[in-house]
Design a protein around this nucleic acid. Structure first.
Length: 645
RNA sequence: GCCGUUGUAGCUCAGGGGUAGAGCACUUCCUUGGUAAGGAAGAGGCCAAGGGUUCAAAUCCCUUCAAUGGCUCCA
């Protein structure tokens, strides 16, 4: 028998007989390893550990700690769930059951059976019972005819539909215990690897993600090779819940929703409003330094504006319905762009005026579907850190680059280090429908955007068919501390609206010329950004941004007067401070200040009053000791300076 | 919008066909205490809204409203 060469990730090369399995390779290294491998990656393809390797290969043995190991583990768990479902609810039909980032789901059609989350325990028990049987996952290659025959017999129309789309000769079944499923694999060696099972929730999901199709029942679950890992995971979920911006927003009195105001319309409480003012102050200063001019626009506009801008056909469904006045329809503004274009058009422009940069914290209203609303992250009224830059083609690269630099500066200040820039391009097939029909302009602007990104050495990914209708864009995806991913900011090129609005400047040759437009919103909307920051900071806003920077804690009423004097000094230095003058013990006051996430606490007693000092405790417990009031003010200012630069 | 779950005091929640409960928060009093909860008393609710069943509904049923987990991550 001929030998093949197996190259392991560390670069070592070993010889094995042809047809060796990953399991056997692992065994040749150690028994312990062999017991723990879940799957194997052979020349980049993930397969079962028992699949024979027929040619020279790079081999990675996948364990639970590997991403693909987990995926295989959870995908196999989905099959186990299906087996348990079939045992308990005969006749159930199956859609798809993939692994996801954390766990797996299976879409099922229960037919006549009733199922609710109360039945989870029963189902979990059945899964564990089946897991204990250590049934092997057996791979079978079947012909399309056989596959169709099997599921016709079984009466599972969903699987039949899936098989229709598959190529004969590439179809495989996997069987474990009494359950057989159409599946590409790979899978665990046997069900015994699964030691802990938790079903998480129940949801409706449209067959093939299309809302015109029948809605199936989706069961989400997660499994682990050890019970202790499940416990740790559940604890982690609990912790994540405590960092949810909706919870923190209520707890810290940042924002509120009210039935009489309406869904998706947040009310900003004093502390939330203070954060907004601080963010705006910061943004306005930064923008002023970068040469932006501030403008203001009304909240409503006539229908004709949105027809001219071209927004109406694309966005009508996500705009609030119009109100009619004297036979004319008025819309609440859903975007600031057309207003800014009108401001540009209001006065004549020379090439000497360009670039023109208009900035506004514009309030917009968008009619998001009720099911899409989500805390502060998805709302119906929003205040956007918006600006539009009108420039010549020659200026474009420098302007676009400056905008990107602004993003990076902001990310540094807010400590955002986990983000992905998505360069969203058009789809040439959809020119004239989803996108403005100007192929050469698309190419030109997309090339410009790419070259800015490449030249600035910014890592990015390119995605097709996600551009705005008027031009390519860069979306910045960020991840909150509890793993939520969303688009925070956007930086867009617009070569279409200047034409629509007949915007021009007079160039050096005394001719009319169209400007290019950049749309940008680095700080997103107040709503989404503060929602993100709440989770990012776990409610502990940094000193510069905290609505309550300092709390004075007199040890007893005897030090009230000195405390008030202190408060006045701090206020004179623009430090946001308050006194806890309740008749409570110091320990209690510290606890409450900690729960309110106040960054600095001043403990005031006999000693401080006599020496004219303050004793400083930082949030979290660090003791900065005693210092003069002047020294404390200097400390606060230095900290803020440090945080903003 | 669709599927599942939930809605009781400011907050977190218990209860449950026979005129409503706890802890925290709040108010008052006692206490004047040095780094994460001192003590006592008090006040506070048409049990989301509307309709139905019943001698009787916060409780059971229906509708509505709202919140919440999903509905993209392709056998």
């Amino acid at each position: 028998m001929s030998e093949i060469q197996i190259t392991l990730p560390d670069g070592s090369v070993r010889n094995y007989p042809q047809g060796v399995t990953a399991h056997q390779v692992a065994q040749s290294i150690s028994e312990g390893l062999a017991r723990n491998i879940i799957a194997a990656k052979v020349n980049g393809v993930v397969v079962e550990t028992g699949r024979p390797i027929t040619e020279d290969a790079n081999l990675v043995l996948l364990k639970w700690d590997d991403k693909e190991g987990k995926q295989t583990f959870w995908h196999s768990s989905a099959h186990l769930l299906a087996e348990a479902l079939e045992a308990l609810y005969p006749g159930v039909k199956f859609g798809i059951g993939p692994a996801i980032d954390s766990g797996f789901y299976y879409d099922i059609d229960l037919g006549e059976h009733k199922f609710s989350s109360e039945d989870f325990a029963k189902l979990e028990a059945k899964m564990l019972e089946l897991a204990k049987q250590e049934n092997a996952y057996i791979r079978k290659e079947v012909s399309k005819a056989e596959a169709l025959e099997y599921f016709t017999q079984k009466g599972d129309e969903y699987k039949l539909e899936l098989i229709q789309d598959l190529t004969d000769g590439e179809i495989t079944f996997y069987e474990q215990g009494n359950f057989t499923d159409l599946c590409r694999g790979p899978h665990l060696p046997n069900t015994g690897f699964i030691k802990a099972v938790k079903l998480l929730n129940l949801a409706g999901a449209y067959w093939r993600g299309d809302e015109k199709n029948k809605q199936l029942t989706r069961i989400y679950g997660i499994t682990f090779p050890k019970k202790s890992e499940l416990d740790a995971h559940m604890l982690m979920l609990e912790e994540a819940k405590k960092r949810d911006h909706r919870l923190l927003g209520k707890e810290l009195e940042i924002f509120a929703f009210d039935d009489d105001i309406g869904p998706g319309l947040p009310l900003w409480l004093p502390k939330g409003a203070a954060i907004i003012e601080l963010l705006e102050g910061f943004a306005k200063k930064t923008e002023k330094d970068a040469g932006y001019m501030r403008v203001k626009s009304p909240h409503i506009a006539k229908e004709s504006l949105y027809i001219k801008s071209g927004h109406l056909p694309y966005y009508k469904d996500s705009m609030f319905p119009p109100m009619e006045l004297d036979g004319i329809n008025y819309y609440l503004k859903a975007m600031n762009c057309p207003h800014h274009h009108k401001i540009f058009a209001a006065t004549p422009k020379s090439y000497r005026d360009l670039p023109v940069r208009y900035a506004e914290y514009g309030t917009c209203y968008r009619y998001e579907q009720t099911g899409e609303l989500f805390g502060l992250m998805r709302v119906r009224s929003l205040q956007m850190n918006d600006a539009h830059i009108y420039c010549t083609k020659a200026q474009f690269e420098a302007e676009f680059k400056a905008v990107n630099a602004l993003y990076l500066k902001y990310f540094k200040v807010f400590g955002i280090d986990k983000y992905v820039m998505r360069f969203s391009k058009h789809d040439p097939k959809k020119l004239g429908q989803k996108y403005i029909n100007s192929p050469e302009l698309w190419k030109e602007t997309e090339d410009m955007v790419r070259s800015v990104l490449v030249n600035a050495n910014i890592p990015f990914i390119e995605v097709e068919d996600e551009a705005a209708f008027y031009g390519p864009k860069i979306d910045i995806q960020i991840y909150s501390a509890i793993g939520r991913e969303f688009t925070l900011a956007t930086n867009q090129v617009d070569f279409a609206q200047a034409e629509r609005f007949d915007l021009y400047f007079i160039n050096e040759k005394s001719e009319k010329e169209r400007p290019l437009i950049i749309h940008r919103a680095p700080l997103s909307t107040h709503e989404r950004f503060i929602g993100f920051l709440l989770e990012h900071y776990a409610g502990k806003f940094p000193l510069w941004l905290n609505p309550e920077q300092v709390i004075i804690l007199p040890i007893s009423e005897k030090y009230q007067e000195y405390s008030e004097k202190l408060l006045n000094v701090l206020k004179k230095h623009d430090i946001r401070a308050l006194i806890d003058d309740r008749s409570e013990k110091t320990g209690k006051k510290i606890r409450d200040a900690e729960l309110k996430r106040v960054p600095l606490m001043l403990i005031i007693g006999e000693k401080e009053q006599t020496d004219n000092t303050v004793t400083v405790r930082k949030q979290g417990g660090e003791d900065l000791g005693s210092m003069s009031v002047e020294a404390f003010v200097a400390y606060v200012n230095a900290e803020i300076e440090n945080q903003l630069n």
